[in-house]
């Protein structure tokens, strides 16, 4: 049962030595009405640095993630505090000496009345990579979040490696959004149903008490759409901004429009 589904064969000693397991932690604390960074711990290649009040940048201090790497980021936003997390550069996922998947896990909790803005630069899937991402975002009842995720299908002119990115967001334990993006697998490649001819995909979850849809459970709120983007009101208290594009510049522009439309809370 505990057989890891990800690595069919146990890694050789050389592979084990090459692969990295790293964990970074960002936690806030309320202090006299201000947000203080309580914990800031990291291990290469995943480094976190405070760059302003309530602002943290992820800094990649090594290549990758590479095949076999297991990186974990824990974010704990204490009740009543505000945190913003960005990254200095995009993440380039590469194949590594180990045939195992590279793993990037993010476990984030946003407490009561707290807010989290997570806007890292895109993840680029280099040819031959085999990557898994998993985000578990648990929100307290009245927490607010802005969570952006952008995936680029290979560097310029390159066919992408493989990736599965799972995202689970809950509000007070209730499911808000569960989605998994699969990239570079033959069944989805070039499918007009999945990404069409797009070379990158972006989605941003905007959620919080202002988007609480409980006032009208019989009617769905309408989406806002444009060329290659949509702001999709969820069944729960949030909106998913979604965009497809040919390149990162177009993606950011489209996702930006979708995020703007998503950021307008529904009228009551």
């Amino acid at each position: 049962m505990t057989t890891p589904l990800l690595s069919p064969a146990p890694p050789s000693p050389a592979e084990r030595a090459a692969a990295v397991t790293a964990r970074a932690v960002i936690a806030t604390r309320a202090s006299g009405g201000h947000t203080r960074l309580e914990t800031l711990r990291s291990e290469p290649p995943l480094t976190v640095r405070q760059t302003g009040p309530g602002l943290v940048h992820l800094v990649s201090t090594g290549a990758g993630p590479l095949g076999g790497d297991r990186l974990t980021l824990v974010i704990d936003v204490a009740p009543g505090t505000a945190l913003e997390v960005r990254s200095v550069a995009s993440t380039l996922v590469l194949p590594g000496p180990s045939p195992a998947d590279s793993l990037m896990m993010i476990d984030a909790h946003v407490g009561a009345g707290a807010s989290l803005r997570f806007t890292p630069e895109p993840t680029v899937l280099a040819a031959g990579c085999s990557h898994r991402m998993a985000v578990r975002l648990s929100l307290a009842e009245d927490a607010t979040v802005f969570w952006r995720e952008e995936i680029v299908f290979g560097r310029h002119g390159e066919r992408p490696g493989r990736c599965r990115a799972r995202f689970d967001a809950t509000v007070a334990g209730r499911p808000l959004l569960r989605q998994e993006l699969v990239v570079g697998h033959p069944e989805v490649e070039g499918s007009p149903a999945v990404y069409g001819d797009a070379r990158c995909v972006g989605s941003t979850l905007v959620a919080g008490p202002a988007w609480d849809a409980a006032h009208d459970s019989k009617r769905e709120r309408r989406a806002t759409i444009g060329a290659g983007w949509a702001a999709l009101p969820l069944a729960g208290p949030g909106v998913l901004a979604s965009a497809l594009a040919q390149d990162t510049v177009e993606l950011r522009a489209r996702l930006g429009r979708a995020e703007q439309a998503a950021a307008v809370p529904p009228e009551r």
Binding site: R166, F167, Q179, V188, A193, V194, A230, S242
Partner: peptide
Amino acid sequence: PALPGHAAPALDLLAE
């Protein structure tokens, strides 16, 4: 909670 959640962004755009 762990059941598949495979998303199809193009289908979402098409539906809307």
